[in-house]
Amino acid sequence: MQVSSVTGMTINGFIAIGNELFKVVSFPSATSVQASRAEEGTAAEGHSTNDAITILNAKIASQDELIEDVVAADVSIRVKQASVGLDANDYILIGSEFMKLVAVAPDTKGITTLQFADEKVIEAGDGQDFKIRFQYSQVRLTAHDFLDVGTGSKANTNWPGLPNSPNVPSYEIDEDRPGRVYYVSTDQDGNFSVGKYFRVEQATGKATLDASAFDLSGLSSLRLGSIGAQLGAAIN
């Protein structure tokens, strides 16, 4: 395309005309520029002689992210600023929308990261209130013996006789949220449990580990020396 001057433009830099973004490829002459069109999700559109050209620098490889919802009427945004320097008159792209920064100021609100014990299945919107330890109850059991617990009822347990129905380990603990039960236990067969995340069957040496609840990054398997006389038994 023919331009009045290529001063300020750089190879791989960007220029904007209207709502279309171009990426500079080369300068055939001092008054012409070759560029690729419809960059960064913009659409190609017609342009006229004397249309204004906004010269932009090359794209910064580092990316930032929003930490607060933005609606169409907002004129300010909050960003994480993860090693990305933002200055007035910079252009940023969020989704398919380009924005020109008027001013940049430090965020005085701060950020707190909460880690939940269990996955939150219901989404929470920006600005939603929450209560901390609201009606919270906690029970802790250490080295507790679940002897024939988990048959479903006292009658089914049939103590001191044999249970009338098989023991179900998931019935050993009954949590009513937001209450929590933390426990280390054995059952009538000597099976060892640390909550619901780790369990060892003593008769077979089988170990069950909830990998999603542990940081095992970089490991494809965890190999133990000896469990129940089975050398090299692996926990996948």
Rank of each mutant, 00 (worst) to 15 (best):
S193D: 12
W159M: 04
S26H: 06
S165M: 07
I92T: 03
T108H: 05
G46T: 09
L86N: 13
S76Q: 15
F134K: 11
I53H: 03
S96I: 11
S29K: 08
G232E: 05
G228F: 05
S5E: 10
N236S: 14
I55E: 01
E97D: 13
G13A: 09
A52M: 07
I227N: 07
G13I: 02
K120V: 13
G152M: 01
Q2H: 10
G13F: 03
S4D: 15
S185P: 06
Q188D: 06
I92G: 04
F27L: 02
D187A: 08
Y182H: 12
M99E: 09
V104A: 10
A44R: 12
V75K: 15
G218V: 02
A35N: 02
G195V: 08
I132G: 03
T157H: 06
N57D: 12
R140L: 08
T112N: 08
Q230T: 15
T204S: 15
D90S: 06
D126A: 14
I227L: 15
V102I: 13
E65S: 15
L224E: 04
I17P: 00
Y136A: 10
L21K: 00
S36G: 04
Q188M: 04
L209T: 01
I173Y: 01
L219R: 10
A203Q: 11
T208M: 10
V200H: 11
Y197E: 14
S76Y: 15
S153C: 08
I235Q: 00
D69E: 13
S137L: 09
Q115I: 11
S26D: 15
T54F: 10
M1Q: 09
V70G: 01
E40D: 01
L21E: 00
N19F: 10
S226C: 12
A52E: 13
Q135F: 10
Q34A: 11
G110Y: 06
E45W: 04
A233E: 11
N191L: 02
P169G: 03
Y183R: 05
I122F: 08
V104G: 04
M9T: 01
L231A: 14
A82K: 13
G190F: 02
D174S: 14
D74M: 05
S220D: 14
A234H: 00
A234P: 00
G161Y: 12
A73G: 11
D176I: 13
S62Q: 14
S83P: 02
G190L: 03
I17K: 02
E119C: 08
V184Y: 12
F22A: 00
I67C: 07
S185E: 05
T49V: 12
K100L: 10
G161P: 06
L141N: 08
S36E: 02
D187H: 06
D210W: 05
V194N: 06
V24Q: 00
I53A: 07
G110N: 08
Q81A: 15
N167G: 01
S48A: 15
K120D: 05
P169A: 10
V102P: 01
D87M: 07
A155D: 12
V181A: 05
T54I: 11
F22K: 01
E20K: 06
V25N: 05
V3L: 13
V149C: 03
L141V: 09
S48Y: 09
T54G: 08
N236F: 10
E68A: 14
D107A: 08
A211M: 13
R199L: 11
T113W: 07
N156H: 07
K23H: 00
D87E: 13
I67R: 09
I17T: 01
H144Q: 09
R140S: 15
